[in-house]
Design a protein around this nucleic acid. Sequence first.
DNA 1: ATGGCTGTCCCTGACAGA
Length: 265
Amino acid sequence: MLRIATFNINGIKARAAVLARWLDESAPDVAVLQEIKSTDEGFPRDLIEGRGYQLETHGQKGFNGVAILSKQPLTDVRRGLPGDDEDTQARWIEARVEGAGGLTVCGLYLPNGNPAPGPKFDYKLAWMERMQARVTELLARECPLVLAGDYNVIPQPSDAARPEAWRDDALFRPESRAAFRRLQALGLYDAIRLRHPESASAPPGPFTFWDYQAGARARNDGIRIDHLLLSPHAADRLRDAWVEDAPRDWEKPSDHTPAWIALAA
DNA sequence: ATGGCTGTCCCTGACAGA
C-alpha cells in the first residue's frame, strides 16, 4: 500500500515541530506540502531528509511555495504550471514516483482569489484554465496520476459547515466551482467522495481547514478545500482515503490539516 | 452585533491568507 498525503503547512519555519511530529506519526510514503513560505535555499532540508525522504521544493520568498517528499525516489521533477511565462508565483510541482507503477504526483496550491470580483479572482480562474490544459496533457499518458493540494475551492455545500457564509467568497463562487467541475469532467475522481460516498450526505464534512479566528475549530466551523483528484488508473488502485484531524489540535498548528489516500501497490 | 488569528519580511506595521 502506498499512502499519499497533502498538507498545507502555512510556513515551514513556524511549522517545523508539527511537520516533524506528523512525519514520525503518520509516516506517509509520499507527501505534498503547500505554503512553505520559503525559498528553496531556506528550506530546512534535514528535517525531511533525516527522516528518509527525498525532498523536491519549488519555493519563493515569503509567500506560496510547494514541495514533494517521497520515501521512494522521485524523477522527472517539474516546477511551475505551464502557460504563463509572467507568472512568478510558486504553486505547482510534479514528479514521478519510482517503483509505483508509473505514478505521477502533482502538488498544487491554487490561488485564493479574494476579493472577488477583481484581479486576484481573474488570476485564480486563469490559473485553473492553465491547470486544465496541463492535466489534459498528463492524462494523455494513461498512467496513474494524483493531483493533490490546496485547491482553495469548496466544491459543494456539503463541504462547508456554514455554506451560506461563503456564498460570495472566491472559494465558493459559481465560477470557481464550475472550473473545479470542468477539471473533474476530464475524468478525475475526488478520492474522499469516491471512497466514502456516504460522507456527501448530512452532516457536512469532513473538513480540512478551520480558521484560526473565532474558535472555528472548537465549533467545527470548517471547510473542505484540500483535495486529492485521481486519474482512472489511480482510482482503480484506491483502497482508502480520509482526513487526519489530529494535527489541527497540536500546539502551534497550521490552519489546515492533512488529507490522504492509500493506493494498492 | 462585533470581532476575533497567524505568518512573513526591506520587521514593530502592512499584507496575505480563507
